[in-house]
Lab assay of single mutants.
Amino acid sequence: HNLTITQGKLFFHYNPKLCLSEIHKMEEVSGTKGRQERNDIALKTNGDQASCENELLKFSYIRTSFDKILLRWEPYWPPDFRDLLGFMLFYKEAPYQNVTEFDGQDACGSNSWTVVDIDPPLRSNDPKSQNHPGWLMRGLKPWTQYAIFVKTLVTFSDERRTYGAKSDIIYVQTDATNPSVPLDPISVSNSSSQIILKWKPPSDPNGNITHYLVFWERQAEDSELFELDYCLKGLKLPSRTWSPPFESEDSQKHNQSEYEDSAGECCSCPKTDSQILKELEESSFRKTFEDYLHNVVFVPRKTSSGTGAEDPRPSRKRRSLGDVGNVTVAVPTVAAFPNTSSTSVPTSPEEHRPFEKVVNKESLVISGLRHFTGYRIELQACNQDTPEERCSVAAYVSARTMPEAKADDIVGPVTHEIFENNVVHLMWQEPKEPNGLIVLYEVSYRRYGDEELHLCVSRKHFALERGCRLRGLSPGNYSVRIRATSLAGNGSWTEPTYFYVTDYLDVPSNIA
C-alpha cells in the first residue's frame, strides 16, 4: 500500500525493539523526510534493546553428524571492536523451508527459537588472519532439518551509529543413524509349514526405512522333555500350542467401542483428552525405555581390526524358502538304536541362519518350516543398504507352526516275539517326523474274553527296548493296539495285532 503524509511529521519514542533503520525507511515511504526535528525521533529510546544489523554474515563451514552440527561463519568486528559482546545463534526444527525470524513471537518477546549466546573469538592483530567464530550444536535429532541463523550482539553506541551483522536463515539436516526397533511384532501360524509375521514401523526411523531383515531359527525343545518319565503317576503330560491366527481386521481397528449394538453396526467412541494424553505418555515412556535398553543392555560386537582377528559373527547367506525346513542338525536320541526319531534339535552355532529381506511392506510369510516346531524370529529395521547396512537392534518374537495331521501315527506293522515265561516283546517304529517329539506310547492289549488293559511306555523305555515287553501273560489269544502321544496330543491307534500265548508248562520236552 502507498502511504503519503502531505502535512505533519513523524514522532517515535520509547520503541526499544524498533531499529532506527526501520524508522528511516518509514520517513522515505511516507514522504516526511526532512520535516522531523532532532528530538522527534529519539536516538536513545528507539532500538536500544534490539540488534540492528546492516551487514550480512556468511557461514564459512558446515559439518553434520547424526546428532551434531558444527558451524563456522566469517569474522565480524565493528569499528570499535570492544562493542562486540558476542553472537546469538538461533535454531529450531523446520520440516519445511518457510521459516521466518519472527515465527511464534508474542507480545512478551518470546519466540519459538532456541538461542545460544556465543563469546567472540580472540581478536588477531592481523586483519587478514582473524579467527572464524563458530559453535557445535549438540543433542539434535537424527535425520531432522533445522533452520539456523546467527547475528551479532553489540553494545549501545553513544554516537548512535547503527552497526551489526546478521546471516540469512539456512537449512541444515542432520545425518541418518540406526533406527529404533520395529514396533509390535506379531507372529502367527496359518499352516503346519508357515508363519505369518506382521509389525509396525519404528517410532524413530532416523532416516528413510529402506528394508527390513527377518531372521528365523528353529528352537530346540526343553531338555526336561527328553529326561522326564511322563508315565509316572502324578506327572502331567506336557503340551505345546501353536500360535493362533490373526483376529479379523475389524476387531483390530483402534479407537473402536468394545460393545456392539445388537441391531447392527455401531460407531466408534472418540477417545477423551485424558485417554489420548495417557497414550502419549505411555508411548514416550516406551521410547525412553527402549533407548535405555539399547544403550545399557546391548553391547556392540567388536569388529575385526587390522591384526587379522576374525569377526566372530557368522556370515549372512541367503537361502531359498524351500530350504528352511531342514535348518537344524538332527541327532538321534540314543545312538545305539537307529530307529528312534531325530527330534532332539541342538543347533550348531556355526550354522548360517536363513533370512529374508523385506522391502516396502511390514509383513512376511515364512514358508518351508517344520510342522509343530518353535521358531525364534528376529526382526531388524534398516535405513541404508549400501555401502553397508545400517540397521536397528533386533526385536524378537516366537511362534510355533501348526501340527501336521497323521504325523504322530505309527507307520509300519507292530511285530512281536514270544519268549519263555510268557513274555512277549512288542516292537514298532517311532514316527519319523512327529509333531514336536514323542513323549510316550500307549499300549492297549486284551486277552479274548477279558477286559482291555493299558500300559504306558516312556520315551526312554522305548529307546532301550525298541518297544516294550509284556510279562506274566496268561495263555490265550491276544490283540494289541499302540498309539503315540506327542507334544500336540495323541496320534491314531494302530491296526490290531494278534498273537497267541501258550502255557509254557505244557511245552513238550526233548528229553527222552
Score class of each variant (00 low, 15 high):
S492F: 10
N477C: 05
F298Q: 15
L293P: 04
S474W: 08
T401L: 03
T497V: 09
R481H: 06
G325W: 13
N255Q: 13
S344H: 12
D408A: 01
N510R: 14
I410M: 07
V443G: 00
V297H: 08
P475T: 09
A395G: 14
K357Q: 05
P300Y: 04
S341N: 15
S268D: 08
S486A: 09
F285K: 14
E433K: 15
L455C: 13
D409V: 06
S320E: 11
C267E: 14
H254L: 13
M427S: 11
V397G: 09
T340W: 14
E356P: 06
S509M: 08
L225Q: 10
T485C: 15
F246L: 09
Y212S: 03
E260M: 14
V359W: 14
K287M: 08
C266F: 07
K271G: 06
C267V: 13
Q275Y: 08
T241G: 09
V331F: 07
R218P: 13
T415N: 03
N421S: 11
S363W: 12
R316S: 14
T340C: 07
L235D: 04
A394S: 08
E290W: 05
E279L: 15
V345C: 06
G308T: 09
L437Q: 12
S315N: 10
G476Q: 00
G308R: 07
D222V: 12
G489T: 10
V296K: 15
P244S: 11
G467Y: 05
R313T: 10
S320H: 11
R483L: 02
T272W: 06
T415V: 12
D291R: 09
R240Q: 05
P403H: 02
G306P: 13
S486E: 00
K271D: 04
P312H: 12
K317W: 04
P332T: 07
F372N: 05
G264W: 14
G368Q: 07
P238Q: 12
D409L: 14
G234P: 06
P245H: 10
I276A: 12
E290P: 06
T307W: 11
Y504C: 04
I209S: 10
Y448V: 06
E290V: 04
S243C: 06
D506P: 14
V423G: 15
P346V: 14
S262W: 04
K287R: 08
K406V: 14
E378P: 02
V501P: 02
S342A: 13
G308E: 07
A394V: 08
S392G: 01
S274M: 02
V397I: 01
V345R: 09
K278R: 09
V439P: 05
H425D: 04
L280S: 05
Q256W: 09
S509H: 01
G264R: 13
Y448M: 09
Y498F: 08
E227H: 10
R286W: 05
E362I: 12
A512V: 06
N295L: 04
S315V: 12
I366S: 00
F226G: 04
F289G: 04
P434I: 04
G325L: 15
L440K: 05
E282D: 15
E247Y: 12
G412F: 07
D261T: 07
K302P: 12
A407S: 09
L277A: 11
D204T: 04
S398V: 11
H416T: 09
D409P: 00
D250E: 12
H416M: 13
D229N: 13
N326S: 13
E362D: 15
Q429G: 14
F462V: 05
S203F: 15
S243A: 12
V324P: 12
I438K: 01
T347H: 12
K271Y: 05
K233Y: 12
V359N: 10
S315D: 08
P205L: 14
A263Q: 14
T494M: 02
E265P: 06
V480R: 01
A394W: 12
C266L: 09
S274W: 08
D222R: 08
D261V: 15
R447A: 07
Y441G: 01
Y504R: 05
T288H: 06
G472D: 12
L453V: 07
E420L: 04
R447L: 09
I418G: 04
P270F: 13
Y230F: 08
T485F: 06
K271S: 07
T485L: 15
H371D: 00
E265I: 09
V457E: 02
V296N: 14
I438L: 07
D229T: 09
Q380W: 07
S342I: 03
K236T: 07
C266R: 09
K278V: 12
N422L: 08
T347P: 09
S444Q: 07
E281I: 15
F289K: 04
D291Y: 15
L277Y: 03
R469V: 09
F499D: 00
E495H: 15
K361E: 09
Y292D: 07
P314K: 13
Y396D: 02
A309S: 13
E249L: 10
V439R: 06
E279P: 08
P496S: 08
Y292F: 08
E362Q: 13
L379R: 00
A463S: 09
T415S: 11
D506T: 15
E389C: 06
C267S: 07
Q256T: 09
E249P: 04
G322D: 09
L453E: 06
V501A: 03
E442N: 07
N422S: 14
V397F: 14
S223F: 06
L487R: 09
D250K: 10
E279F: 04
W493A: 00
P245A: 07
D273M: 11
F355P: 04
S257F: 14
P332W: 10
E282L: 12
P244N: 14
W216G: 03
D450L: 04
G234M: 10
R390N: 13
P349D: 15
K432H: 14
E290T: 08
G489V: 10
D409I: 10
S248C: 15
I366T: 01
G264Y: 06
E221N: 04
F289N: 09
S444N: 01
P431G: 06
E224T: 06
V397P: 05
H294M: 14
D503Q: 13
G368C: 04
T210R: 06
S251V: 09
K253V: 01
A484H: 00
T347V: 03
K361W: 06
V365K: 02
S203V: 10
C267L: 03
V501K: 03
E465D: 06
D409W: 05
S474E: 15
V214R: 00
R446P: 00
R390V: 13
G476F: 00
D323R: 11
F226E: 08
N435K: 00
T497L: 10
D261A: 08
D503P: 15
G306T: 13
R319E: 13
L379G: 00
R240P: 10
V345Q: 14
G322T: 09
T494D: 00
H416Q: 10
E442W: 09
N510W: 08
E290H: 10
P349Y: 09
L225W: 14
S474N: 11
K406M: 09
C391P: 03
S257G: 06
S251E: 10
R318W: 15
G374M: 06
G308F: 04
E249C: 09
F298V: 05
F372T: 02
Y441T: 02
F462T: 03
S348W: 06
R218V: 03
S344A: 06
R316W: 15
Q429T: 06
Y498V: 06
L225R: 09
A335P: 13
H425Q: 08
V507Q: 15
L473A: 02
N339F: 07
K357G: 04
V359E: 08
A407Y: 07
Q256K: 11
K233N: 13
E433M: 06
V423K: 04
H352F: 14
V214N: 02
S243K: 03
Y292N: 06
C231S: 03
E227S: 11
G207K: 03
P354Q: 10
S398I: 10
A463G: 12
V296Q: 13
